[in-house]
Structure formats: C-alpha cells, structure tokens
C-alpha cells in the first residue's frame, strides 16, 4: 500500500513536470506583459491582447495555411508513393528488387547534414527557393514510410490479391482499392508520423523560404521570436509559441493512441 502511494506520488509529480510548463506558457500568453513575472498558477488578469498584437504583426494565419498545405501534400505524397513502392517491394517479383530494398535502407542511414547544402543549391538552380516546391518535393518520398508499408503488406494474405487479379484489377487498383482498406492502421501510423515531422520541421524552411507569405508556422514563429518584430513583448512571443503548439496538441487529443503507436514504430525500426 505504501509502495503504491509512493508510486502514485512519483507519477503525479512527473506528470506535473511534463505538463505544467505548457500550462504556464498558455497562462502567460493570456496575461498582460508586466504580470508574467509573477505568474505561477492563476493569471491576475486575463487578456487576449497578446494574440491580437501577434495577429497584427505577423501573417500567422497565412503561415498556418502554408503549414497545412505543405504538411498535407507531403503526407499525401508519402502515402501514395510509399504504398506503391512498398507494395512492389513486398508483393511483386522483379529483377533488382533486393537492390532497391537495400538502397532504401541505406538512404535511411545517410545523415541529412551531408545533403543539406547541395540540396539548397539544387533549389537555387531549379529556381525553387521561395516556392512551395522547395518545401514539398524533396519530402514526397520517405524511406521509413516505404519500409513500414512493405513490412505491413508482407503480412497480408495472398488470397486477397489473387482474388483481385482474377477480377482483372490492375496493380494500382489493387493497391488503392484492395490493399488500402485492409491497411488502415499502417496508413494512419505513417500519416501521423509524416504529418507531425513535416509540421515541426524548421531548419529546411529557414533555408529555402525568405518570402514572408510562404513561411511555415514554425519558421515564422522562430524568426518572430529571434528577430526584432516582437518589440521585446514577451507575452506576444509566448502567444505565437502557443499558437504553434496548439494544432498538434489538439490532433494528439483525438488520435492519442495512433500518435504513440507511430512514434514507437519509428523506434523499433532502428
């Protein structure tokens, strides 16, 4: 009994440690600037002024839209291409299949640091800096996504595919009409993982996007906080930070199980 109490105590303290900072940030963002210094639990005064100022200062809605577009298209691409390639690798026999499989594994081990600068130069040469292309195209195919699809498709019964072939389905139709409905868990996992990673990506946008109207949310917030336009108003900076965190937290509240599963599956890949 004592042991259990101690355990609960530890767990509750840890839960506070992991969540209270977010709560503080949220409360600070709705407090007037001069009250933030003394804020611990309850704000002495509630105001939306920080949010109003933030919206007036930076095109944050536009950045939100950009992030949705970019992450949405990347996720779609990863799902479509990933399942096509994963299917070919898992279910079709052709020369060079193993070679391609090992190539994919190999690309996963290349650190992105090595390709960062030449990829930027590539974007410059393609005239893609300051376009959505630069943000989206390099991420449309993702090695991890392919591998996850392949692993999952390997476990599907062959009879499913054979039946479809007898009905005269083409391979694309098999993938999207027969395989997809039977692969919801892996699709959700890959989708959440891809969406989250691209949503939180900040280094690449910092490099290829300079036009304010094309900036993604994390990029705009980073530059807003580091740069001078917040006019040293702490509350406004924190408001932008809350704004950045909120969409993912809301999604997490709904798809908690899938979030956790997808992150775990990246772990087990290694």
């Amino acid at each position: 009994m004592i042991k259990k109490t101690i355990f609960y105590f530890i767990l509750i303290v840890s839960a506070i440690v992991f969540t209270y900072p977010f709560l503080w940030m949220f409360l600070a963002s709705i407090s007037p600037d001069k009250a933030i210094g003394n804020l611990v639990l309850l704000p002495s005064q509630v105001t939306l002024d920080n949010y109003r100022q933030m919206i007036a200062k930076i095109p944050i809605w536009r950045a939100l839209l950009n992030s949705v577009i970019v992450s949405g298209l990347i996720t779609t691409g990863v799902l479509v291409f990933g399942s096509m390639i994963g299917y070919a690798l898992a279910r079709l026999e052709f020369k060079g299949r193993n070679l391609i499989f090992y190539l994919i594994i190999f690309t996963m081990t290349i650190p992105f640091q090595i390709t960062l600068i030449p990829q930027y130069i590539l974007m410059v040469k393609l005239n893609w800096t300051d376009t959505y292309y630069a943000l989206i195209v390099p991420y449309l195919i993702n090695a991890l996504g392919i591998i996850m699809f392949r692993q999952y498709f390997l476990s599907l019964p062959q009879s499913l595919i054979d039946a479809a072939r007898i009905d005269g389905c083409g391979e694309l139709r098999i993938i999207f009409r027969i395989i997809w409905p039977n692969s919801v868990p892996v699709i959700l996992t890959v989708a959440i993982l891809t969406f989250m990673t691209s949503w939180n990506e900040v280094l690449w946008p910092l490099i290829v996007i300079r036009k304010e109207s094309l900036m993604t949310l994390p990029q705009l917030v980073t530059l807003f906080v580091v740069g001078g336009r917040a006019e040293s108003q702490l509350g406004v900076k924190l408001a932008s930070s809350v704004f950045l965190a909120t969409p993912i937290v809301i999604a997490y509240a709904f798809f908690q199980k899938y979030f956790i599963n997808s992150m775990v599956s990246t772990g087990q890949k290694e």
Binding site: F22, V221, S241, V242, A245, F259
Partner: peptide, 8 residues
C-alpha cells in the same frame, strides 16, 4: 512534450 514543436 514529444509531439510539441521543438521551437515552442
């Protein structure tokens, strides 16, 4: 904290 953006 795992899911929240590193920037935030």
């Amino acid at each position: 904290p795992v899911i929240v953006s590193g920037v935030a």
